[in-house]
Amino acid sequence: MSKKTRKSPQRKAADATAGPNPRQPCPCGSGKRYKACHGAGDDVIVLDPFRDLAAAPDLIAMREFVPSALAPLTLADAGKKLAAGRTAQVATVLPNASAALVRGNGEALIGMQVQTRTGDISTDLGRALRWALTAEPGEQLPVAGAALGDPVRLQDLLVADAPLDVTVHTDFSWWLDPGTEATPEMTATLERANSVIMPTDLVRADGVRSAYWTDTGEKAHIRWLRPEPEDRLLPALARLLAREELDLGEGSRFVGAFRAHGLLVPVWDVDKEMHVKEWSAPAEAFANRLGSALVSLDSSPVTDAERRARDSIIGRQVTLR
């Protein structure tokens, strides 16, 4: 039987500079081994690209279904060094679906609703943000890809525990650079973009974040991106369903949930005649019920009725349209 040999100091030093161990968990936090994640190249799909970012729920909403919104980004030290005093914002979509642009005043903007160039949306956005923090005013980046240099993720450039302060807009007038007049071409572009916006707004209340009300024409919905891990959130939702407490009050109906980039998103149909502000109190009450249900999971086991409720929720697959 062969004996294990100790590594020489030279071997240890070489290992320390060789990069992540292919057999160890990937630094991105996906839970996969490095060789099966970022160590395999840009084609690997990362299912939870915004992991460990407090901004994750709103970043996902801005990518998937919020039509027009802006939010300032809180840059970490690495981002600040690139920016040299420049500010940055994330946008739902930029003119021509660009990956990034720099306003005349030097402000950097990156777009969420862009064509994905790698399997990791965070890498695409990180590259776009790095470009925007150093590009000249007036420049525009059509797409972000490997041509922009070594991979950099949003997690490398942003403060992890900083949430987004999202401002939802009713149109795309913010596309215009402040102090400039729209050309006939831009006016036409704005009119086309504005014509397809579905009324959308945040449900604002204490303890309520990332809950978005939308009027699709035939119906109105509230889609609430939850930060909790699915293995915690599902049994808590099931506990409320078993108690018939999963609605948002009168005029609402829980219709199911969908998964988006690592998070579970419960969805309710709501009375479209009610203003979004009228859902603030019901949403706050639900947030309190859900918080209590999450806490109770640590001391009270899941019942048979709650297991059946959980299966019912899993069976209600909601499709984004």
Results as ranks from 00 to 15, higher is better:
127 R>S: 11
103 R>W: 03
305 A>C: 01
293 A>K: 08
82 L>A: 03
74 T>W: 05
110 I>R: 00
143 V>G: 01
182 A>Q: 12
80 K>V: 04
279 W>V: 13
75 L>C: 04
246 L>S: 10
223 R>L: 06
34 Y>S: 02
195 S>G: 05
226 R>L: 11
46 V>K: 09
41 G>V: 03
205 A>F: 06
46 V>R: 10
105 N>V: 01
280 S>K: 12
107 E>L: 14
6 R>N: 03
249 G>V: 04
18 A>N: 10
220 A>P: 08
171 D>M: 09
212 Y>A: 02
14 A>E: 10
216 T>H: 08
300 S>E: 13
168 V>N: 09
302 V>C: 07
199 P>A: 08
66 V>T: 09
45 I>C: 01
192 R>L: 06
24 Q>T: 06
18 A>I: 04
306 E>M: 10
237 L>C: 08
181 E>M: 07
186 M>R: 15
52 D>H: 13
90 V>G: 00
284 E>K: 14
258 F>K: 09
74 T>D: 13
156 D>K: 08
159 V>R: 13
118 T>N: 05
224 W>T: 11
111 G>Y: 02
12 K>P: 03
216 T>S: 13
126 G>S: 12
245 E>M: 11
104 G>Y: 02
297 L>K: 00
113 Q>L: 02
159 V>Y: 06
316 R>T: 04
58 D>T: 09
250 E>I: 15
253 R>E: 14
194 N>G: 05
126 G>H: 14
10 Q>D: 12
80 K>T: 05
129 L>P: 07
307 R>I: 09
140 Q>V: 15
129 L>W: 01
62 M>L: 11
115 Q>N: 10
226 R>T: 06
61 A>M: 00
9 P>A: 08
189 T>S: 13
155 Q>Y: 08
84 A>F: 00
194 N>L: 12
72 P>Q: 07
205 A>I: 04
227 P>M: 05
241 L>I: 00
25 P>C: 00
283 A>D: 10
259 R>K: 13
259 R>M: 09
52 D>L: 01
85 G>I: 00
172 F>G: 10
8 S>K: 12
127 R>W: 09
204 R>Y: 03
166 V>A: 03
111 G>N: 05
117 R>S: 13
45 I>L: 05
75 L>G: 05
198 M>T: 13
7 K>H: 07
124 D>G: 07
32 K>P: 01
295 V>Y: 04
113 Q>E: 06
130 R>Q: 15
271 D>G: 10
71 A>V: 05
38 H>G: 08
161 D>S: 11
25 P>N: 02
146 A>P: 13
257 A>G: 06
222 I>E: 12
30 S>F: 03
178 P>T: 14
129 L>H: 04
128 A>N: 01
273 E>M: 13
174 W>M: 07
14 A>M: 08
28 C>I: 02
32 K>S: 08
280 S>C: 13
116 T>Q: 15
102 V>D: 03
49 P>F: 03
197 I>R: 11
16 A>I: 04
159 V>D: 08
83 A>N: 12
311 D>G: 10
274 M>T: 14
43 D>M: 03
266 P>I: 15
5 T>E: 12
146 A>Q: 14
112 M>T: 07
100 A>P: 01
238 A>M: 07
106 G>A: 01
147 A>L: 03
75 L>W: 04
278 E>T: 14
228 E>L: 06
126 G>P: 07
305 A>N: 05
181 E>T: 11
272 K>P: 12
8 S>V: 02
289 R>K: 15
141 L>E: 04
210 S>Y: 03
76 A>T: 02
